[in-house]
């Protein structure tokens, strides 16, 4: 058990920030992101300690749990993932870096545009540009070829630019 604990402890350290961000961009709430993220690792640990050999790619496994829990979150009480400037938390201080990010209006726009993207585009942008996964790593996470990932990344960035342009025009 202690060996499994050591291994999962390393998996936790390597993935906690990425999984949190992955969820945060989908739910737009720090508290909800924390709740879901802790549940992701709890479920991950429960599965890992019983069948660690069956988990070939721990990161992909955790992302899948996170994806499912976000879906459950929106399914519960019939919520839909809507993102608008009204739904974003109002930040009036710079207590931490996260809040400081939102103090910057350009960044806030990018963040909102990213949240508006369809899931597959949002995920690939977050993985590549924010979490700094390489294309081969993303290909492994998604179970796709590297070529397909490059094409999707290009389309996702284009879609983000269009969304951002539209937001700027409205603003």
């Amino acid at each position: 058990m202690s060996k499994a604990k050591d291994i999962f402890s390393k998996i936790y350290d390597d993935n906690i920030e990425r999984i949190y961000r992955f969820i945060f961009f989908k739910v737009n709430s720090k508290d909800i992101a924390e709740d879901i993220c802790s549940e992701v690792f709890l479920r991950g640990w429960q599965t890992f300690k019983q069948n660690s050999k069956e988990i070939e790619n721990p990161s992909a496994f955790l992302y899948q749990i996170a994806r499912n829990l976000v879906i459950d979150h929106y399914r519960e009480k019939g919520r839909t993932p809507t993102v608008s400037s009204d739904s974003l938390p109002i930040v009036d201080s710079s207590e931490n870096m996260e809040e400081a990010v939102f103090m910057n209006s350009d960044l806030n726009m990018v963040k909102m545009a990213l949240s508006d993207l369809k899931d597959e585009y949002q995920e690939i942008i977050v993985w590549h540009y924010i979490d700094e996964y390489t294309v081969p790593e993303i290909a492994e996470l998604m179970g796709k070829s590297e070529g397909a990932v490059r094409v999707q990344l290009h389309r996702a960035l284009k879609s983000l630019k269009n969304t951002l342009d539209n937001k700027v025009k409205i603003a």
């Binding site: 906690i16 992101a33 802790s38 931490n96 942008i125 700094e132």
Partner: peptide
């Protein structure tokens, strides 16, 4: 594109608090 990518990289600062990370790990095990 370059500006957009720079802005995206700045979003890396979105991360959970260190206290929460430690506490969650403790509770997990």
């Amino acid at each position: 594109d370059k500006n957009l990518i720079e802005q995206l990289r700045a979003l890396k600062e979105i991360k959970p608090s260190q206290e929460w990370v430690v506490l969650t790990k403790e509770n997990l095990f």
